[in-house]
């Protein structure tokens, strides 16, 4: 008989693991990836593969040569960051932008803080924000989708690269053309995904399917997405009621731009969101509010990523403010027949 192993209880562990959680997120993103491949063809695939590969490469390099510790590629968090970064940029983005974005996402936003778990901001979003500010032209060149809604499920992937000729996105058009521009767009197109935009944000339906999968797998809870979308809807609704000539109707806000991607996949990132249910609600509501503020009053047409990044900074504060309710903290108990 071999040596007995001695350790403190508990001696068993559940099936949870970081790599399983990350794998679930990857699986949940599959529908969105599929739609993007249908719409943008090989360009989308190239961007995604390059961003995943460079994120993994940079994480490996930094751990091997700078931090001198064992590689944590196995936890798949770099893969998730890579996919999310890829989904947050247009499919026509030049390769060097993607590599730089990955370096910022992994190097600055994640490993500089000490790796997975210690980062304050969502790495993929930091990468995206950096790219948006540094390469504004390339980042707002939106290829037109290859397919229309009617043919979405029949064409398959088009082998030709998408022409760099682009149309404006919904939010961009509103910013420039005012509320009247709404009539040029179909909300159904946005729901299905046959519109221009960042690779992963186009199809609200595909993202919702992924979100439901994450809920079933208990990787996310309903609090952040619901609070996010809910507060955005309510706030946009109030603005719409006040001045319908200046602001668009709230239901548009929910399906266009990066709202769904942000609410379901970016804001729910475990590392950079609060821990308790109450904290998550506050966090989500803040994200929604800031998003609408930026969209309706800011100079950028889209505000999801900045809203989430700003709220990320508040997470430590929210965690302090919203502690779980402790067992046994009750009003003085009436002693039975004391």
């Amino acid at each position: 008989m071999s040596l007995l192993n001695v350790s403190g209880s508990p001696h068993v562990h559940g099936r949870e693991s970081v790599s399983r959680i990350m794998l679930d997120v990857c699986l949940a993103l599959l529908p969105a990836i599929l739609v993007s491949l249908l719409c943008f063809g090989w360009g989308a695939l190239k961007v995604l593969l390059l961003s995943v590969a460079s994120c993994m490469f940079f994480e490996w390099c930094i751990e091997k040569f700078l931090m001198k510790r064992e590689s944590t590629l196995g936890d798949l968090s770099a893969v998730v960051t890579g996919i999310l970064l890829g989904l947050n940029v247009p499919s026509s983005l030049p390769w060097y932008c993607i590599v730089i974005g990955s370096l910022i996402a992994i190097g600055v936003a994640k490993m500089a803080f000490g790796g997975l778990g210690n980062n304050i901001f969502n790495p993929a979003l930091v990468g995206r924000a950096f790219l948006l500010i540094s390469f504004p032209v390339q980042m707002t060149l939106w290829p037109k989708p290859l397919v229309t809604r009617g043919s979405l499920f029949f064409n398959g992937i088009n082998s030709a690269d998408v022409d760099a000729l682009t149309g404006p996105t919904f939010l961009g058009a509103i910013k420039q053309g005012g509320v009247e521009a709404v009539s040029n767009f179909s909300i159904m197109d946005h729901f299905m995904g046959t519109v221009g935009g960042s690779i992963g944000e186009i199809s609200a339906l595909a993202l919702l399917v992924g979100g439901i999968f994450l809920l079933i797998r208990k990787v996310i809870t309903w609090h952040v997405p619901v609070a996010f979308l809910g507060s955005a809807f309510v706030f946009a609704g109030i603005l719409y009621l006040v001045n319908p000539a200046k602001f668009i109707a709230p239901h548009y806000h929910l399906v266009v731009g990066g709202m769904m991607l942000g609410a379901i996949f970016m804001a729910t990132d475990m590392v950079t969101s609060p821990m308790t249910a109450a904290g998550k609600l506050v966090f989500g509501a803040g994200c929604g509010l800031l998003t609408i503020l930026i969209r309706d009053f800011g100079s950028y047409p889209e505000g999801v990523s900045f809203a989430i990044l700003i709220m990320n900074a508040f997470v430590p504060l929210i965690n302090r403010g919203f502690k779980p309710h402790r067992f046994g903290v009750v009003k003085e108990v009436k002693n039975a027949k004391a």
Partner: peptide, 18 residues
């Protein structure tokens, strides 16, 4: 060694365990 310790690297804790 007659057994194998598999806990945190803390003498204080190991001391309380065995």
């Amino acid at each position: 060694s007659k057994s194998q310790y598999d806990g945190i690297q803390s003498c204080a804790y190991a001391n309380s365990l065995f």
